[in-house]
């Protein structure tokens, strides 16, 4: 079982690195993850079947913005492993996998919060002239921590069984889970504020609020706002810079003045 737990943990690492290091090529999709599990456990056909069922469940879940997704990638590795090891159906195996996905999601929230402290560290490294250390935070430490966040729950649940994971999840109080979720939604506000502090000036502030208000009231997507913004900016550019060029070129300015 130790050997299987390690191999499945490594599949977990491949799957989590798909969106971390390989630009999300969809290796993390249940169909692929489950097939990999099938190959590792020596039952490719079962892996394919379970993968197809899980994929059907998962399609339609699009992961958008900062909210933590229902961790289908982690869930499907566990579910596929249990379906193959115990002969359970894909749906039953997925139910068993839910507590593990919950644990994984919680770990992911804590991890993404902890990684906010990388920003403080990177800033300090840059001040000290340790540029390499600053970028290593990303490529080495970031990748390693994400790998651990998948390896550990998979290893525990395969090696010790889901009973232990269920116990761990039931020990975590509800207030902490929902508290961490709220805290994770507060942090982006700070990120946006930091970005604004380099870009916002009294003259430019209205544009920020226009963008905010349109989306707040009319629920138009960020892409939609960007397209409107480009047109507004071009119109304003024509008004502002046309005035300037005509007043500096003399003749035109005079003729307008006389009107």
């Amino acid at each position: 079982m130790l050997y299987k737990a390690i191999i499945l943990g490594i599949i977990g690492i491949i799957v989590v690195w798909d969106s971390r290091l390989f630009g999300r090529l969809n290796v993390e999709q249940p169909l692929i993850a489950s097939t990999l599990v099938g190959i590792a456990l020596g039952d490719v056909t079962k892996g394919l079947m379970v993968g197809a069922t899980l994929e059907l469940i998962s399609l339609g879940l699009v992961n958008v913005g900062a909210a933590a997704p229902p961790d289908m990638a982690l869930g499907s590795i566990i579910a596929a492993a249990f379906a193959i090891l115990s002969g359970a159906s894909a749906q039953t195996a997925l139910t068993i996998a839910i507590p593990i996905a919950v644990l994984g999601q919680l770990l992911a929230i804590v991890l993404r919060m902890a990684m906010s402290s990388f920003n403080v560290m990177a800033n300090r490294y840059i001040d000290e002239g340790k540029f390499k250390s600053a970028t290593n935070l990303h490529i080495i430490w970031g990748s390693a921590l994400y790998a651990i966040s998948y390896f550990v729950p998979i290893f525990i649940s395969i090696y010790f069984g889901t009973g232990l994971v269920k116990q761990i999840v039931s020990v975590i109080p509800k207030w902490l889970t929902s508290g961490l979720t709220v805290a994770s939604a507060v942090l982006p506000a700070y990120g946006f504020a930091l970005l604004l502090s380099t870009m916002l000036s009294k003259k430019m502030a209205p544009y920020f609020f226009i963008g905010f208000l349109i989306t707040a009231y009319a629920n138009i997507s960020v892409t939609g706002i960007a397209l409107f913004a480009i047109l507004i900016a071009i119109l304003l550019d024509q008004i502002i810079y046309k005035d300037k060029s005509s007043s500096s070129s003399g003749g035109d300015g005079d003729s307008l003045d006389s009107l």
């Binding site: 946006f192 604004l196 870009m199 430019m204 920020f208 208000l213 706002i225 913004a229």
Partner: peptide, 9 residues
């Protein structure tokens, strides 16, 4: 202009 409107959104 575009950047700020996008951040606002």
């Amino acid at each position: 202009v575009v950047g700020l409107m996008v951040i606002g959104s």
